[in-house]
């Protein structure tokens, strides 16, 4: 067992190197098994949806599915727009201008998901004539901003664009 110190160092180096390389290998092996649970390429390819909005009358809204979640597309009336724009920012829990939440004042495009715990709010309900979430009682106004209840922020605006006057592309 009496070996020179140099030899001992080499042995230690060998073992350390083996452990290190082995650990790298295990790490690299684990990654595919984790990554396989991420959205696959067919799911990612469905990232955009085009919606025909020519049939939506003022005051009505449609709900479309995008990435497995509902998106509200609301054609707002003049009074709803002015109601949304007359609110003072200081009164809001999550201050955002209505102008910043829409591309065209008439069309509000918004994820139909309550920011509290992910339920779908009901249209034209609640104390602010916007949306009301039945799960835990969050009230949203006609711009989809949180006004009362446990939800922390306004309903999310997805990335979208107007392809033409009758078509919206979400995503």
């Amino acid at each position: 067992m009496e070996k020179s110190g140099k030899k001992n160092n080499r042995r230690d180096f060998l073992f350390t190197a083996s452990y290190t390389v082995g650990a790298v290998g295990i790490g690299a092996t684990i990654w595919p098994f984790i990554h396989q649970m991420n959205p696959d390429s067919s799911v990612k390819a469905l990232a955009t949806t085009e919606v025909d909005i020519s049939q939506v009358e003022p005051g009505n809204s449609i709900t479309v599915l995008w990435r497995g979640k509902p998106v509200f597309i609301k054609r707002r009336t003049e009074s709803e727009i002015s109601e949304a724009r007359s609110v003072k920012l200081e009164e809001l829990k999550h201050p955002e201008k209505d102008e910043d939440r829409v591309q065209k004042p008439e069309w509000l495009v918004m994820m139909g998901i309550c920011t509290h715990l992910g339920c779908v709010p009901l249209s034209d309900k609640g104390e602010y004539n916007g949306w009301f979430c039945p799960c835990h009682g969050s009230h949203y106004d006609t711009a989809g901003r949180i006004r009362k209840g446990p939800a922390p922020v306004n309903m999310e605006i997805p990335k979208y664009e107007f392809v033409d006057n009758n078509t919206i592309k979400i995503g």
Binding site: L14, V21, G25, A28
Partner: peptide, 16 residues
């Protein structure tokens, strides 16, 4: 290539 490197390391460790 990775496996060959690791195999060599383990081989010499085993000898030791």
């Amino acid at each position: 290539i990775f496996l060959i490197i690791l195999t060599l390391l383990v081989y010499f460790s085993m000898k030791k």
